[in-house]
Design a binder for these strands. Structure first.
Lengths: 191, 191
DNA sequence: ACTTAAAATGACTAATTAGTCAATATCAGA
DNA sequence: TCTGATATTGACTAATTAGTCATTTTAAGT
């Protein structure tokens, strides 16, 4: 019975991801989500007491998945530049593999339907990212810019490159990913 | 009588800008917009036959205003780098002065409620931007990246810097704007 | 002051919404 | 097979929605 429960909850989250990304929060009814997930309208509310709880739960799950992917194998890299490059590839490749999730977080990161509590809990998962910027500033690898500016430029540039790859469909994706890293690295590194 | 008409239409557009930006398209009712604008619920539909016509009209107006500002005094600059810097300052300063409009275009540029017709008409206003990238590639000022990648990086970086300035509130805004330009220029320029 | 055409109004409607709840289905353990 | 706790269902409700339209108001020209 536990298995079934997880199936339905996962189906609801998947349906919500698709529809919220396509049509927005108020543009999607709970009935549409239930139908897409293949459950009754009442079932949604067994798992998520309100529509806002659903989008907050979804946002948390997706951001958590992204943070795990971003940090993967970063600390095993030899140089600072290699660490940043690894994180860049993790981020962009995840974005291409998970277009809907990538688009979803971009769309709802500053939405009023995501509670400040959710935002705070999610933020904790990204401390390592801020710390990596601080490390680069201390060891002189990065230009003398505020750390928040560096992390924002890095992350937003990844969104730009993912959108570019998905929309312009360049013949060589890996070239585009590497080009993107070169632009960002030249931009934020010292000298 | 003409004066009054323009007043009401402008009030509706201003109210729509505020509410759509805050709560999204489906998160805002036409009744709320009319109330915010200080007109009756029926009056909105005298100016905009449907809610979608309203958001499309608003999107067109705002994007047109931005394109005019972006291109201002750019061609009178001496060097290529000065042209790009001028455009950067135009863009970022407009974003800071017009937070709601800047946020609005960022939020709705890939929304399904903006018609492809609106998108096409707006695109024509930005040909000069693409041309400036092509110019930089031809004269060897810019690195060998696809022009769409360069224009996207430039524009998205401006959004990042505007958000950074509005959110982190650095003591010296001009320093932050110039820092932002330095990062972008180092990133996309040759050598 | 009178005329007239356009502009403004807000009560109204049919459709849709988030969320409820009483009834039904499921299934592990006895 | 029977029991009881839990999961699922979908008809239902009260509230809200975009858009309509008959009526009233406005104001420019005479």
């Amino acid at each position: 019975m536990k298995k079934q429960v997880e199936d339905k909850k996962a189906a609801l989250l998947e349906a919500a991801l698709k529809l919220f990304t396509e049509r927005g929060f108020h543009g999607t009814s709970t009935a549409q989500i239930s139908k897409e997930a293949g459950v009754a309208t009442g079932t949604l509310f067994n798992y998520f007491p309100t529509k806002e709880d659903l989008i907050n739960g979804l946002y948390f799950e997706v951001k958590e998945e992204l943070s795990r992917r971003m940090g993967k194998d970063v600390q095993t890299q030899k140089t600072y530049k290699e660490k940043l490059r690894k994180m860049w590839y993790n981020l962009v490749e995840w974005g291409i593999e998970n277009q809907e999730k990538f688009h979803f977080v971009g769309q709802f990161c500053s939405s009023p339907y995501i509670s400040s509590h959710t935002r705070e809990v999610v933020m904790e998962e990204y401390v390592f990212f801020h710390d990596l910027a601080m490390e680069g500033l201390k060891n002189g690898e990065l230009g003398d810019y505020p750390p928040e500016m560096i992390t924002s430029m890095f992350y937003q540039s990844s969104r730009t490159i993912v959108d570019y790859i998905l929309h312009s469909e360049p013949q060589d994706r890996n070239k585009a990913i590497e080009d993107g890293f070169q632009v960002v690295w030249k931009g934020v590194s010292k000298k």
